[in-house]
Design a protein around this nucleic acid. Structure first.
Length: 309
DNA sequence: CTAGGGGTAAAT
DNA sequence: ATTTACCCCTAG
């Protein structure tokens, strides 16, 4: 009647994920009662949390429980019908997911539509690489490149793209170049109000109480969290690749330009999506560190955002 | 209260 | 026209 739809804000998503990280999946009521999250989620109900989490997870692994058979067996060689549906969820090694996307055939108008988003993704990918490598003193370009190339197929011009990106990130202060290695900025000057978000996340990175009771379904706690991260990773290569091929056609300058324009102009939607990815990267990076507590007051709001209450 | 199924309104 | 995402309803 009054509100046809109420989109989830990144803050809400972050809070939800933080709550799941803190307690675990299924404790929606508990998460909702937590004073740290109730401030952000007091408008949502426990059912909403569950639904949202389901949607996120479905996107992560491909087909969790929903999505009957729409995209499933459609245009795939070999029919894995008789096989189990044991996805590669509990992968303890690294984030590596079998992409089963029928590729984006919507290359009708090859504008910058999807490029901007992908570029921003690569941005986060680099952060994740550095954060995951956890190399003391930072990681050099080759290491980062290897890390990414190892997980995804790298376009022929990837090295070039990466170089441009690294340079840009260093120039903007997001990365610190020491000698020949790149490190993350200590102050986390990624954005303005992105700080309290990370703090919010970091506050609840204690650990997951994985109490092995006896049943088999137990490890869907941390696995699913990591799955979330894998989602971003497995989604990037395709999109980023297409973007890379296009971007290289233009010039390396176009990348920085697009990035800058993106950051200045529509830093509402893109940044919003980057928020959750960044939150995760930051959380993983600063894991097990002494984090000074901060107020969780989200005061500074962007001027041109969507005003939905 | 939580898990799952389903429908419908927005995006592409 | 197809896909995404939010919300409601029902069963356990």
């Amino acid at each position: 009647m009054g509100a046809p739809k109420q989109k989830w804000t990144p803050e809400e998503e972050a809070a939800l994920k933080a709550g799941i990280l803190k307690y675990g999946p299924g404790k929606w009521r508990t998460i909702l009662k937590d004073p740290e999250f109730s401030g952000v989620l007091h408008l949502r109900s426990n059912v909403d949390l569950k639904d949202k989490w389901r949607n996120m997870n479905v996107m992560a692994n491909g087909w969790g429980s929903r999505d009957k058979g729409r995209l499933a067996l459609k245009r795939m060689i070999q029919a894995p019908v008789q096989d189990e549906v044991a996805v590669t969820s509990a992968a303890e090694s690294d984030e590596q997911i079998p992409e089963a996307r029928p590729a984006t055939t919507s290359s009708g108008s090859s504008q910058y539509g999807g490029s901007r988003r992908s570029l921003l993704r690569l941005d986060n990918l680099i952060m994740e690489a550095i954060g995951n490598l956890k190399e003391p003193g930072g990681s050099n370009k080759t290491t980062i490149s290897t890390y990414i190339e190892d997980q995804f197929w790298a376009p022929p011009n990837f090295k070039r793209l990466l170089s441009a990106k690294l340079k840009y990130l260093t120039a903007t202060g997001k990365l610190i170049k020491m000698k020949r290695k790149y490190k993350m900025a200590p102050k986390l000057t990624f954005s303005d109000r992105r700080r309290n978000l990370s703090v919010l996340l970091l506050d609840s990175n204690q650990r997951i109480s994985s109490k092995v009771d006896g049943d088999d379904i137990n490890m869907l706690t941390k696995s699913q969290i990591d799955l979330e991260l894998a989602k971003m990773s497995s989604m990037s290569p395709q999109d980023a690749a297409a973007a890379a091929a296009q971007a290289v056609a233009e010039a390396d300058i176009a990348i920085a330009e697009a990035e800058e324009a993106n950051r200045e102009a529509e830093a509402a939607e893109a940044d919003a999506e980057a928020a959750q990815a960044f939150a995760e990267a930051a959380m993983k990076t600063l894991q097990g560190r002494s984090i000074p507590r901060m107020g969780v007051g989200c005061g500074g709001e962007n001027s041109k955002g969507h005003n939905e209450v």
